[in-house]
Nucleic acid binder design. Structure first.
Lengths: 224, 224
DNA sequence: GCATATTTGTCCGTATGTATA
DNA sequence: CTATACATACGGACAAATATG
């Protein structure tokens, strides 16, 4: 019984629980999270919840206003652009410098297969998850623990922005084939080509997200 | 009185205080930090200290063992290699893609001048700080808030490893001229050359650190 | 191998300051 | 402007895990 993930700290377990709720879009961006209410509904103490809040704030999933508590982060267009800037830098470099026999290659392959299956079954959340897994596998090519965790946080934050846009098919479907093509280039050893392809891909994806986001802001602006 | 950095949370202020003590090498790596003792000596409650601990653990400066509390991180050779792997990826890319008139250029120039002055006065801690500032400026060329904060954490962790090696002249002096040369290349618009130069630089630096670290481990091994 | 002391993990009650209706 | 609600921070309490003799 030496599982470290099993009976971690209560605060850590709560952190994970909140994180998954956040990236699943269970709460509206901007929504305030009351310490008292949440701690009661989770049946934990306020102190424990505060520890979890602090971590998630550092990860960018929550925002903290002094003396006003925490609320769900509402990704701005600037933050989306920032996230994509980092993604391009890290992912393209990882792909360009990788050696084709790297173990992460099988993870890329699995992700592509999962995405194809998901598309066939029109299970768009599954396609989205497979897409995330594909990009994590790309970063894993760089063999860096720190890069992996940083990238995980980055994707979580981006997922918060995705949560704002309620059209998973539109957002994820186009990239299934691009991932497959990317994997083919990579397995063929055409690293530079693959990396450039990934770069264009990410520029394109960023543009789509930003456009959808701007549209949503406009709608909200009309309403408000 | 609307300074946000002035009267932040107590926990945040404590976090900063602990962080600067950690990178200054005030505590031995591996040393246990008792909640009760530290909270008393800092005149804060245990709960507040625990929040600070949690953040610093996430930054890699402290390590947490369940039911055994936190202790100062003792960077391993593997973590040093990991840090340098990330540094090469981020810094070289930032330099290669930067446009020469970027505002961060002046920060690079200031850092070089500070380092030159520090070397003249044989103020090695100052040289070390200037060196850190130079590399932060390089990363700032990429114009990414997230990259900047990630890199700051990375350098803090590396500084913990430097703290283990008590020979600042040996560690920092050789890089003053390399930084100056790098800046010259950058200002001349020779981006590829500058980036390659930086890459070799970082490989060299990593080797020096690892060698010094291994030497120190050997000494300790004999002693223990 | 056992009993004891120490330390962490977690919770609660409460006082104080800040924001908002 | 007052009152209320809430976040912030503290200290005490106790169980559980760990270290020590």
């Amino acid at each position: 019984m030496s599982r470290t993930t099993d009976t971690q700290n209560l605060a850590d377990r709560v952190t994970e629980e909140l994180r998954s709720k956040l990236i699943a879009g269970d709460w509206e961006p901007g929504q305030r999270l009351s310490e008292a209410a949440l701690s009661e509904s989770l049946a934990i103490s306020r102190n424990t919840l505060r520890e979890a809040f602090r971590l998630l704030t550092k990860e960018g999933l929550l925002v903290h206003e002094p003396n006003k508590g925490v609320s769900v982060a509402a990704p701005s267009m600037a933050s989306i652009m920032d996230i994509y800037r980092v993604r391009r830098m890290i992912e393209c470099q990882a792909l360009a410098q990788a050696y084709p026999m790297h173990p992460a290659r099988s993870a890329m392959r699995t992700a592509v297969e999962d995405a194809l299956r998901g598309r066939e079954e029109r299970d768009w959340p599954a396609v989205g998850s497979a897409n995330m897994a594909f990009h994590k596998a790309v970063v894993a090519l760089a063999d860096s623990e720190r890069l992996d965790t940083m990238f995980t946080h980055l994707l979580a934050e981006l997922r918060l922005a995705f949560g704002l846009l309620r059209d998973p098919e539109f957002l994820h479907a186009p990239y299934v084939d691009m991932n497959a093509k990317l994997l083919a280039l990579f397995e063929a050893g055409k690293l530079t080509e693959a990396s450039n392809s990934l770069h264009d891909y990410l520029v394109h994806s960023e543009r789509i997200i930003l456009a959808a986001y701007a549209r949503r802001l406009a709608e909200q602006g009309v309403r408000a």
